[in-house]
Design a protein around this nucleic acid. Structure first.
Lengths: 195, 195
DNA sequence: CACAAATGTAAGCAAGCACTTGCATTAAAA
DNA sequence: TTTTAATGCAAGTGCTTGCTTACATTTGTG
């Protein structure tokens, strides 16, 4: 089915770029072929159907569990520093995968299930890890003891909202604004969560 | 072009419901006609084109400047109470219009511009009003003096993220969880913003 | 060179799309 | 009752879609 990896990769990249802009349904195989500098038939010879094409693109470029690793290794027990690290890492990961996320957010009637779950699971995972972290910190007297689940949710949703806003904004929200936001919002949460 | 309002409304409602689920491109005029209990031609006799149909749906059901009114009248100068009112009203409005918002978020290659701007302008408007409010409160010594723009942005993005998460979640996030979130997050921000 | 695998080219198919046309039917207004 | 406007129905148009087939061309490998 595939021998020349370069051709396959070109197709996958073009797929991701186009679908991130226009969504799955509105992106045609003809467009993809044109963007990839490849004949349309080649796409079908490589991937069979349009659906399998998107699945291949997801499998190829999907980010692993980077956040989990971060929680296991990167945190030091200092609330302000840790929130900062979390926020920065989160936006890094999300930004690196923003096109895949954009595709799954736009959705479609015929989108593969594996792709669709992406969007909804995204914020939940981090929330659980953060809630555990806050519980631990609270038992050490480093954080107010109240509602770690909802506190984690608030922090998560704030960063998720920031990401989505940047994703859909016409005039790009500058990198600098993002950094300002991260620093100020972490400062806010640190003050709010400190005992 | 239109005489029987009931027929037109049925079409508009069916349009919104279907497009909120499947997006603009993937929703066919035949489906809309079926859902509205109307012949397909009737749609075109009423609205001309599919594009004008969606525009009409937006114009008919679009929420006015409810948030602006809220800022001019509903706030009392008590930080905690005001943030609570803001958050609650925001989620009310967003939830009431969640289908229209869903359509504009999904986007399309041929979506009317007027519709597209909806999604990106949405968070910005409230941010500006909230920033002004914080500035005023700060000059009265009721709020820390630092960066009202970014503080407002953080609050906005948090609520926006919460809304989007609920919008796309498979298992509905319960009304109760939302209320818990609103109360706890407002408490967090109140503490963080108090001098 | 010779052979095979990967790609290009051209043509087309069946289905679905938005949208149109012509005519019959209903029903409300005059 | 006559007229008029709104709708239904059936058929069809032109276009695009994902996908296929058959054959020619390139490209890398022994």
């Amino acid at each position: 089915m595939s021998a020349n990896p370069t051709t396959g990769e070109k197709i996958l990249l073009a797929t991701i770029n186009l679908m991130a802009e226009k969504g799955y349904d509105s992106t045609t195989t003809k467009e993809i072929a044109l963007a990839a500098g490849v004949n349309e038939v080649t796409i079908f010879r490589h991937f069979g159907t349009k659906e399998k094409l998107l699945e291949a693109a997801f499998n190829r470029f999907h980010y692993g569990n980077e956040m989990t690793k971060l929680f296991n290794e990167g945190l030091k027990g200092n609330l302000h520093e840790d929130l900062l690290t979390l926020s920065r890492t989160y936006h890094n990961i999300m930004n690196r995968n923003r096109k895949l996320i954009s595709i799954s957010l736009k959705g479609s009637s015929t989108l593969p299930d594996s792709v669709l779950q992406e969007a909804s699971n995204n914020p939940k995972h981090l929330k659980n890890l953060l809630a555990e972290y806050l519980t631990t910190m609270s038992s050490q007297g480093k954080v107010v003891t109240s509602n770690p689940e909802i506190q984690a949710l608030s922090f998560m949703w704030m960063n998720f909202g920031a990401f989505i806003s940047r994703l859909n904004a016409k005039e790009a929200v500058s990198e600098e604004t993002l950094n300002e936001f991260i620093e100020e919002s972490v400062r806010l949460f640190t003050k709010a969560l400190s005992p």
